[in-house]
Amino acid sequence: MSEEGETVLDARDVAVHFGGRSTLFGRPPATVRAVNGVDLVIRRSETVALVGESGCGKSTLSNAIVGLQPPTRGSIAIKGRQVVGAGRRALNEIRRDVQMIFQDPALSLDPRATIGATVAEPLSVRAVARGGELKRRVAELLTQVGLRPEHATRYPHQFSGGQRQRVVIARALALEPALVVCDEPVSALDVSVRAQILNLLVTLQKRTGVAYLFVSHDLSVVRHIADRVVVMYLGRIVEEAEREVFFAAPKHPYTRALMSAVPEADPVVQRAKQRFVLKGELPSPANIPPGCPFHTRCPLATEICVSDRPELTPRPDGARVACHHA
């Protein structure tokens, strides 16, 4: 299924490191390796979920993909055009094809701009439309996300969280991008509103063929929306698989730990479930353990894990896993 369709995102060996530059006084601070060599390909109409605990580099990677955070190394191509090293003008052209939906809808809308002005901004800045045509396009976009055209004159504080996220989606889709990076788009919303927003995203994808990079730490949401799941740990991908394979047969011990942490609705199942508990804390990305970065917390770890870092290797069912033992 992932074979057909044009490639929308092609990221190769992306790394984002922070700090480490020597200062005037004292020793340079330790380099924080937020993203440390990630390969990621997303095709048209595909939804790829990026999961992992906070601090694993999910958000940094998404920022790098939309060009808000220049990577230290590697290449990121959106529909064949290179984001890394692109000038302002080139970047603006690329951003027609890559937009972002943020986690907190309360902070993603300018409180002093009307909804109409916010949704119109991508169109008016690029002179795609103006005057009556612009108004018509804004009304159309608002209708598409389930709002009414007359909402255009209102301010963000007059809307609920779910409605605000609809506005954010309308703005992201205004330029008909090929890829939308969704940075935990529903985690700040009420559970009752989540399904609505997720369904809206799915509907819009069917209509426009947009691809989503769906950053989340909520596996139930991921199961609902993703075609493919990518698990990150300390700046690296540790497992990548199609949704069915991923949920039926998680392989990496870290993935299994994530899965076993999801509570089951049925208490009998919940009690019978084999718990896969991790010990210790997430190591600091400024001080990543040698060998397999996960060995400090892994229940399966042996000597080889301390000395050699496992590469992502394909498995018979199509999954790719970075583990010596799984």
Binding site: V66, L68, N92, R95, Q99, M100, F102, Q103, D104, L107, S108, L109, D110, T118, E121, P122, V125, R126, V168, R171, A174
Partner: peptide, 17 residues
């Protein structure tokens, strides 16, 4: 650093705007 400023940047707005 607020998301709505980032969104505006992504929309293609220049520094002055």
């Amino acid at each position: 650093n607020l998301p709505y400023i980032k969104a505006s940047e992504l929309a293609g707005a220049g520094a002055a705007r």
